Structure formats: C-alpha cells, structure tokens
Simulated assay, not measured.
Amino acid sequence: MTDTQRAVQTASSEVLYAVEDHIATITLNAPERMNTISGPMLNELAALLLRANEDADVRCVILTGNGRAFCAGLDLRKERGDEGLSAASSPTTLDLRSTPPTVLQAMDKPTICAVNGGAAGYGMDTALGCDIRIMAESAKLAAAFVKRGVVPESGGTWFLPRMIGWAKAAELIFTGRTLSARESLDWGLANEVVPDSELMGRARAVAKEIAGNAPLAVQAAKRMMRIGLNETFPDHVHHVYLQLLPLFKTQDMAEGIKAFMEKREPKFVGR
C-alpha cells in the first residue's frame, strides 16, 4: 500500500479522525445533541487539528459533522456536569495555544468545512475559521449569539468584517439572523452549495485537487495570505520573497518545472 493509499482511522466517542489520500477528515460525532461542543470535545478537536497540521502525509483537512447538524454551538447544559461549559464551570482565561479557533486559524494545512447541517454560534464561527466552506442544500449558518446574550466568541467578530465588509457583518451579527445555504452563498460566506447527498464527495474532490499540488507551496501561500491580513504591501512583498527562496531549492519545484516541460501531471513528495 502506497503512502497515497494509506488509510488511518481513530475514534473517540465524540470526534472521529481518518486519513486517506493525503486528506484528513475530522468529524464531530455527537449527533444526539446536534454536535454541541462539550469540554472534552474542545480538547480533542484542538488535538486532532494539531495532529493533522503536523502530519507530513496530510495535505488538506476536511471538517464536518455526523447527523443533521454540523454543530449547534457550545454545550452549555449544566446537567452535563464537568463536561459541560456552563458559566459556573468555564475558566476566566484561555490558553490560546490550544483552543480550536486559534489552532484552526494558525494551521498551515488548507481546511475545508463540509457543512452538513445547521452551524450555529460556535459551530458557525468554526465553519468561518476554515479556508473553504462547501454547504449542503439543507445547511444553515445561524449567527444567534446576541439572541443568547453573548458575542460571537470564537472568531466571528474577526472573520465576518474581513469576509463580507463591516456593514453586512454588522447586519448579520446585530440581528442574530439565520442564513440558508443559498443565502450564505449570496453573502459570500460559502464557496458552493451542493445537494446533501453530494456534500462529502464534492468536499473530497476539492481536497484531492488541493492535495495534488506541491504541499510546501500551498502551505507557504496560506501562511502568506494569513500574514498579509495585518501588514503593509511592501512588508508583504518582502516576506513573500523570503518564503519563495527556500521553495527554489525543493525537489517539488524541480518536479513541477520538469512535469510542465514534459506535459504530464507532477508527482509531488513534499520535499
């Protein structure tokens, strides 16, 4: 079995992880409560995102959910005891090195959210934290934070103004509106909408297209896009040049040029 065909799957009760064809799929797996995020789920999701980012065999990550919801938000029910995220049990500070939103935003590996159903609150912010969103026809994005007396706590106030501009972000956050998949596409929050039955097939097709490119170059491009959000153009050009120089020395760049000259598909190895 080749590295490309290697398949690995591990599972906890609430998060599933599998790697195949250079694609890691992370699946929220608490369908009985619409994949609301418990304390243990937060920790495991962060750990699996880090695992995928550090695995040299992984070139793209798909994040999705089991059941009729992608993620209905944080699990705030006090009856879940130590596993819940009630006000009484929540810490007053965060370790930003290991929280899923910051881990997701800092990842060099491209991420695709296959939004299989409702993404509300924390679930919506998590979907927005991915690089690409492919939504099932029945999926929704619910910015219901202010309807629950909270703010978008996991990145929404940072992502939305940058993604759709201040005015549209203000409209969505201040009203707490729910957008259908088609409305999400119209608002620029989804890359595409597909029939429910085709969601994972389409997400894997896009992931395979990404994984077929030189992984070091893809990761460097994502890194530069992220850094570019907060720097001037002259500084950015300088940093891109510094990223480009090491790529000139890679086996993959030589292979890319050779494959182009020979009119064939390149075979990249990540070195």
Rank of each mutant, 00 (worst) to 15 (best):
R59F: 03
Q5K: 14
L49I: 03
E32M: 10
A169D: 07
D235H: 09
E192A: 06
E198F: 05
A72I: 01
G84D: 08
R182H: 06
L128S: 08
K140M: 08
A254P: 01
L247Q: 06
G117A: 05
G212T: 03
V15A: 06
C113L: 11
V151H: 13
V115W: 00
E137I: 01
A46L: 09
T36W: 02
R51L: 11
I112R: 06
T36Q: 15
I23Y: 04
Q251V: 15
I173N: 05
R223L: 03
W166L: 15
E171A: 13
F174S: 13
E153L: 15
D3G: 11
L216N: 10
M200E: 09
P161T: 09
A139E: 02
R162M: 13
G256L: 14
V146Y: 13
L199E: 01
P100W: 12
F70D: 05
F260Y: 11
Q251A: 15
A52K: 07
A72H: 10
S38Y: 10
P266A: 05
A203D: 08
R33P: 00
G129Y: 11
R182S: 09
S154I: 00
H22I: 00
K267C: 10
T93A: 15
A254W: 06
M261W: 03
H239N: 06
Q243M: 11
D57T: 09
V240T: 02
L229Q: 13
R204F: 00
D125T: 09
E14T: 15
S89L: 12
H238F: 01
L96W: 12
